[in-house]
Design a protein around this nucleic acid. Structure first.
Lengths: 130, 130
DNA sequence: CCTGAATAAGAATTCAAC
DNA sequence: GTTGAATTCTTATTCAGG
């Protein structure tokens, strides 16, 4: 259950500006995780989350380090440089990258086109790694 | 005076493992900055410091920039929790994730199994996103 | 503005229990 | 190994005052 909760926490702090453990706790409970603040505190420690300042000057839990936009631009240029071709047929998108770049491309797609990469399609997603 | 104090704080947290504002306060006083915890709290906010985990598993104040190990653990637990199935046939590996998790899974695979994900196969890599 | 004193608010840990 | 209840510890803020 713990891993599942951890995943949910990461989801939640990504989606909302959560500035206290109690607030996170409330969201977790809405999601069916019936735990207490003590557990949330431990989860935060294990996930190495930090309380930073959001752009509005409010505190907010987030994953450490990168501000995202930083990452995003970094990978964006990587993406542009390492993709060989992009093709679409029906509901399938095929992205070919240069050797050794697949991992970076994957992250780049997330950074550059999150809505296409994961957000807008229905059903399961499948990765084929050939 | 505030600027000097800020500079000193950055120096101190770089040099020592400081895990509470009170401890930082003590160091500051030794350095001739006679302030209180309230001020330290404000300084930390202005400097955007965060309380992270040091390598020893203790909390520690530090400047934001973490590198990857953070990402890695973040995605690792996500991976563990959002993958529905993993199958292998011939030279094809199929990873199915829960809806909305594909992006995270992708990064998790990089974090957890970089060698399988990108490093060991020859030729081009192809992502199919269905 | 910047700060301290006091307080409220928040978070980590202890102690048991499972 | 994981958790909750209660506690202690820590930190943010309020409310003056400089």
């Amino acid at each position: 259950m713990k891993t599942r909760r951890h995943a949910k926490i990461l989801e939640l702090i990504k989606e909302y500006d959560i500035d206290t453990q109690d607030e996170l706790l409330r969201f977790l409970r809405e999601s069916g995780f019936d735990v207490t603040q003590a557990t949330v505190s431990r989860d935060i420690k294990e996930l190495r989350l930090v309380k930073t300042l959001s752009r509005t000057g409010k505190y907010k839990y987030s994953t450490g380090g990168d501000t995202g936009s930083n990452m995003s631009s970094k990978f964006y240029s990587l993406f542009a440089d390492s993709v060989v071709s992009v093709e679409a047929a029906q509901n399938i998108v095929v992205v070919k990258s240069m050797t050794g770049m697949a991992q970076a491309v994957c992250a780049a797609m997330d950074a550059a086109y999150p809505q296409h990469f994961v957000g807008t399609l229905a059903g399961e997603y499948t990765f084929f790694i050939v």
